[in-house]
Design a protein around this nucleic acid. Structure first.
Length: 1123
RNA sequence: GGGCGGGUAGCUCAGUUGGCUAGAGCAUUCGCUUUACAUGCGAGAGGUCCAGGGUUCGAGUCCCUGCCUGCCCA
């Protein structure tokens, strides 16, 4: 503990000539990481050069980072995700691939907007509306800059070898161009459309949100039972103005055969009771539904109800979606377990604009509903969730007293009114009953508000089109297309997309099978604005028949785009209402052209002055432009919505490389797509399969040229291969690796609110970056969750985990192994040369063994990287370094290393290989050691190729080791194993006899039991003075080795000898252990089927084991007798 | 409701087409300042592989049923 850590400059200056032993005893990450990072930066070690690929000098390897959200700093899950990517990037870079790891961040529309809105409220007490769109977006931009910097710094501290010069952001100019292009192409091909649908509406943020942005939470609520009076109405025309509907009395219902009607006063108004948890939505009811199997259905056919206060007449319809009350079901007892049946009355209020199921029912009964003169959908809420008559209904009636109330207050008010009012001509209250009910309700992730199903205009991508989702499924490699295989059809696939682990291909495939059109609009301010301008048709146009007004509009539009020289950049689409159309503008210039149209709409050209001189140039026939403007009913209005974040994320693998136009993107983009697309591997978490992987595959296959993969090397390939993929284009990546989700020690998700999260920077400061990375790799098996027990450090107050001790200890072990190696080799400077390994005589047993282990490990590491088996990779390196190299090799060579030149070469080379093999997982400590060891001269070893560093003498660009399989040496491994098992056996006896560790004992064994080299190992590693064939002295302890009887002498001083109790006990345990083995093995051999059916080698092995167990037992018995 | 995982030592997890008497790290017990490392070294103890059935000479591993548990989708 007295050792002080040396500043980096000191260890840096320590040269080759014997200064290595000045390294501190403990590896202190903080002393090295910053300096190492600076060296990588200075050498531009991670900057990829696409030209090397295009010139054929190197094969490409590329990963695009799943861009972290700028919403928050990175957590441990990001650390895992990025470590795994870095391992791939670094290993492939060393293997000689021109490696590009594309970095960047995601604007994360709603998440970021919500965070900034909260901040604004807290710090300045204002809303975004008060600030205004432009100012607010500036605020978000500033926030993004802040977090982008934090995130980038975090990644750098983790050691990520991204190409930082190419870092992108999903909303920067380069990415924005890609978004525009993609939107335009899809729009033009009819795959983007506008539709009125029910969406998840967040009334606080006032935007549509996706299911992914919602969570379910149980709340205490109630079922309310509302009475609706039954009436007659003239079907088909509705009621004439002023005409009162005719009430239906109970006695009439009784005549119609309504069960139980006779129990009510015959002259009084009859009613039905609906059950609801959201009584305020009754304002939007357009029907009451009953199950056709309900015994009451017959007698109600053709009747209507009148909505209380509103006075709207709506039909009673029959739909088998309606749940029968428990008592009416075939098995009433069983139905009691279904809360819906328990609470049901059999009558369902149908509110198509405010409930997804009602929406479907409304569509099924469109005709019956419209026959009453009502639209199917009646929206009774404003976007802020208050009751409003401005968004879809006019028949407010007495319900005006609810208008303007927020939904919670409206609910209360509705209940109050229903309670005090009675059904007309009756004594019963409109509110029949209230029952407490606990149920799960959808909430918005971002605002925590209860989600309102809401009818609104949204933009959709028609992903159900064969060129999108089905094309994404066809991209799977055939052996991962389960559904095709199960249906017996030959797998029809054209792709090379492969998931690791394979089971996730199923998730991917099933998602596409059940996919619905993708709602891409969000009512937010932070994001890519929908590049569409809409207008209504003027009366002039509408005076024509529908067919000809469209034709006229088309003609005007095509003239317009021609005179503006924008035929390729503007596209017109009619909207389904038949009264309006939209124009998509591809470029900023096209956008300005539309602004010019707007200006002309209200001005003469002369009045515009020079403001549109760039658009309305002298060769533009402005009269054509003006004519178009004239046919617009109102000016062109730009859509205020922005696009779903995933729309831009989906383009990430190509937008970051300059698609659609690398020339416009800038100088650094030249050749990027050609060199690196398709990329190699996407590394991400499960939930991203549906959110992102799917969309990237769909978009890239749609947008990139069909012949890209075969013809991309042609000059200007993007422009010349004009044909869009249309579902047959290349993939964004070949492999998708799905890694685990990190949970806390109790299996819960890590989250801020639970306070169980781990900040990677806290781990780096307590354990070092390498320790974190090693531990994370070591945990990465094929499982889907990993647990990370978390503890709060009492001194720093920071969360950490004892799991990372593993990595820290391992770093330290490597450091000390290197320290020892340096001291050995510095003391005996060597000269370069060659070491022939082709014949054993040049190398001792332990050296041949070490090289053999190294060769095996090299292969296993290579295989592990290929198969994304990170845990295996880490484990192989752990065993190689700790068990093989430190525990056995370094200990074994201590007596000989100073004088054995060959051994020095093996030592130096082995450490060098270990550093290289370990570098992708632990880049800092390996680089720090490599600074020293590369300065040591040493003979090269035949059969081991260690390529030189390409940049700045850095390990990170040095060659990946190629330890050839010719160095694998089974004979040496077997000889070593024999020595090792004897050493272990001797150590065990020493320990049981409490022999002092330093005491040198003697072994008495038959002559020739071991050769000289093996004997030397035993002497060094088991504390043995000598192995002799002399008769053992009195008091020597017997032991069995193979089939020989051995004795250990000089275990204790004569005075201490004599106690045979411990020895007796030991021998008895040996005997009983062996007896157990003998029983097991004999049982197996006595099984008649075994010898018959098991492979002969297996039988032989069992026989050998049995023989050994018997010999060991006999030896122990003999020793026991000798006591 | 549909799909996918997990259940192996006190804890966290390996265990590749079925085949050494089921392994590692942490924790634990004993011994050790042995000269690279006490963030270390040597030795040990610790398991009805969730339960039941089946296939097999042989099952932690394959099949079926059930129980517990987690995640995704609707």
């Amino acid at each position: 503990m007295t050792e002080t850590s040396k500043p980096s400059s000191d260890s840096n200056s320590s040269g080759p000539g014997g200064a290595g032993n000045e390294l501190p005893k403990q590896y202190k990450p903080a002393d090295h990481e910053e300096r190492i990072r600076a060296r990588w930066d200075a050498a531009k070690a991670f900057h990829a050069d696409p030209q090397r690929v295009l010139r054929g000098e190197a094969k490409p390897y590329c990963i695009v980072i799943p861009p972290p959200n700028v919403t928050d700093r990175l957590h441990l899950g990001h650390a895992l995700n990025n470590t795994l990517q870095d391992v791939l990037a670094r290993s492939h870079r060393m293997m000689g691939f021109e490696t590009l790891w594309m970095a960047g961040t995601d604007h994360a529309g709603i998440a970021t907007q919500a965070v900034v809105e909260r901040r604004l409220k807290k710090e300045e007490g204002i809303t975004r509306q008060q600030l205004g769109r432009e100012k607010f977006v500036e605020k978000v931009q500033a926030f993004k800059d802040e977090y982008e910097r934090i995130i980038t710094d975090q990644l750098k501290l983790m050691g990520c070898s991204c190409d930082w010069d190419r870092q992108r952001f999903t909303m920067d100019d380069v990415c924005a161009r890609a978004v525009r292009e993609a939107f335009f192409r899809l729009f033009k091909d009819g795959l983007i459309y506008r539709g009125k649908r029910l969406v998840n509406w967040d009334p606080v943020l006032q935007t549509a949100v996706s299911d992914d942005e919602c969570y379910d939470e149980e709340i205490d609520s109630s079922f309310y039972y509302l009475r609706y009076p039954l009436v007659h109405a003239s079907r088909g025309t509705g009621l004439a103005a002023g005409e009162d509907p005719q009430p239906v009395a109970w006695n009439e219902l009784a005549r119609r055969g309504y069960p139980g009607a006779e129990q009510h006063p015959g002259e009084e108004q009859a009613w039905v009771t609906v059950a609801t948890t959201r009584p305020e939505t009754y304002l939007g009811d357009t029907a009451v539904a009953i199950n056709p199997k309900d015994p009451r259905a017959n007698s109600l056919r053709g009747l209507f109800v009148e909505l209380p206060l509103v006075g709207r007449i709506i039909p009673v319809i029959e739909d088998d979606y309606v749940v029968l009350p428990a008592a009416m079901q075939a098995d009433p007892e069983a139905a009691k377990s279904d809360p819906k049946a328990v609470f049901a009355t059999g009558f369902l209020k149908v509110t198509p604009a405010h409930d997804p199921n009602d929406y479907e029912i409304g569509l099924r009964h469109k005709a019956a509903i419209e026959a009453c003169g009502n639209p199917v959908m009646i929206n009774m809420l404003a976007p802020d969730g208050s009751v409003s008559d401005k968004h879809g209904w006019t028949d407010v009636g007495d319900a005006h007293l609810f208008v303007g109330l927020p939904r919670e207050k409206a609910r209360k008010k509705v209940l109050e009114e229903f309670k005090v009012r009675t059904v007309d001509n009756s004594t019963v209250s409109l509110l029949a009953e209230t029952k407490p009910y606990r149920h799960s309700v959808k909430h918005s992730d971002r605002s925590k508000a209860i989600i309102e199903p809401y009818l609104s205009d949204q933009w959709y991508v028609k992903v159900t089109d064969d060129r999108l989702a089905p094309a994404a499924n066809r991209a799977l490699v055939s052996d991962q297309r389960k559904s095709e295989q199960q249906s017996g059809k030959a797998a029809v696939g054209d792709g090379q997309l492969r998931f690791y682990p394979a089971r996730y291909a199923k998730t991917y495939e099933q998602w596409h099978d059940g996919i619905r059109d993708w709602c891409i609009s969000r009512q937010l301010w932070w994001g890519h604005r929908v590049p569409v301008w809409s207008f209504g048709f003027s009366q002039e146009l509408l005076n024509n028949t529908p067919e000809s007004h469209r034709a006229k509009c088309t003609t005007l539009f095509s003239q317009l785009s021609k005179v503006l020289h924008l035929t390729e950049d503007l596209h017109l689409q009619f909207l389904s209402d038949g009264l309006s159309a939209s124009i998509c503008a591809k470029t900023p210039r096209a956008e300005r052209a539309l602004a010019a149209v707007n200006a002309l709409y209200s001005n003469e050209r002369e009045e515009l002055g020079d403001s549109f001189a760039d658009i309305l140039t002298t060769d533009v026939d402005w009269k054509t432009v003006a004519e178009f403007a004239y046919f617009i009913d109102d000016h062109l209005s730009q859509d205020t919505d922005v696009l779903d974040t995933w729309f831009s994320s989906a383009l990430w693998p190509i937008s970051t490389m300059g698609w659609p136009n690398p020339q416009l993107a800038g100088k650094g983009f030249e050749g990027l797509l050609q060199a690196f697309n398709p990329t190699a591997t996407l590394c991400t978490a499960r939930e991203i399969i549906t959110l992102w992987v799917s969309r990237m595959v769909m978009f890239e296959r749609y947008l990139m040229p069909v012949k890209w993969e075969t013809e991309k090397t042609k000059p200007d390939a993007l422009a010349s291969l004009a044909e869009n993929g249309q579902g047959r284009g290349p993939l964004p990546f070949k492999n998708v690796f799905i890694h685990a989700v990190i949970q806390d020690g109790e299996g819960r998700k890590m989250s801020k609110s639970l306070g169980n999260g781990l900040d990677p920077l806290d781990i780096i400061s307590s354990h070092g970056s390498d320790a974190m990375r090693f531990t994370l790799c070591q945990m990465t098996t094929q499982t889907q969750d990993v647990r990370m027990p978390m503890v709060k450090d009492p001194t720093t107050g920071r969360n950490t985990s004892p799991k990372f001790d593993l990595g820290r200890n391992f770093s330290n072990k490597l450091w000390n192994a290197a320290r020892f190696t340096m001291s050995m080799l510095s003391a005996a400077p060597s000269s370069p040369g060659h070491l022939d390994t082709s014949t054993p005589r040049h190398l001792s047993l332990i050296d041949r063994w070490m090289l053999s282990r190294l060769a095996t490990a090299n292969k296993e590491v290579n295989d592990s990287i290929t198969n994304f088996e990170y845990s295996n990779y880490a484990q192989v390196m752990y065993d190689l370094l700790w068990r093989d190299f430190c525990d056995w090799y370094l200990e074994a060579i201590k007596p000989t290393i100073a004088s054995d030149k060959s051994q020095q070469a093996v030592l130096r080379t082995t450490l060098d290989c270990i550093l290289r093999l370990l570098h992708p997982i632990m880049p800092y400590v390996t680089e720090a050691i490599y600074e020293q060891i590369r300065l040591l001269q040493g003979a090269a070893i035949d059969g081991i190729k260690l390529g030189a560093s390409r940049k700045g003498d850095l390990l990170c660009t040095a060659g990946w080791p190629d330890v050839q399989s010719s160095l694998r040496d089974e004979k040496s491994e077997a000889a070593f194993e024999r020595a090792r098992s004897l050493i272990t056996a001797i150590r065990e006896i020493r320990s049981q006899h409490a022999v002092q560790p330093k005491r040198r004992i003697t072994v008495h064994a038959p002559a020739g039991l071991l050769d000289a080299q093996a004997s030397a190992l035993v002497q060094t590693l088991a504390g043995v003075e000598a192995i002799s064939s002399d008769a053992p002295p009195a008091g020597a302890v017997g032991m069995a080795f193979e089939s020989s009887q051995l004795h250990l002498g000089n275990l204790k001083d004569a005075a201490a000898a004599g106690d045979t109790g411990a020895e007796r006990e030991r021998l008895q345990k040996v005997i009983s252990d062996n007896e157990k083995s003998i029983a097991t093995l004999e049982g197996r051999l006595n099984n008649p089927g075994y010898a018959l059916k098991a492979p002969p080698a297996m039988v032989k092995q069992t026989q050998d084991q049995l023989a050994k167990a018997k010999a060991d037992k006999d030896a122990a018995n003999a020793a026991l007798a000798a006591l």
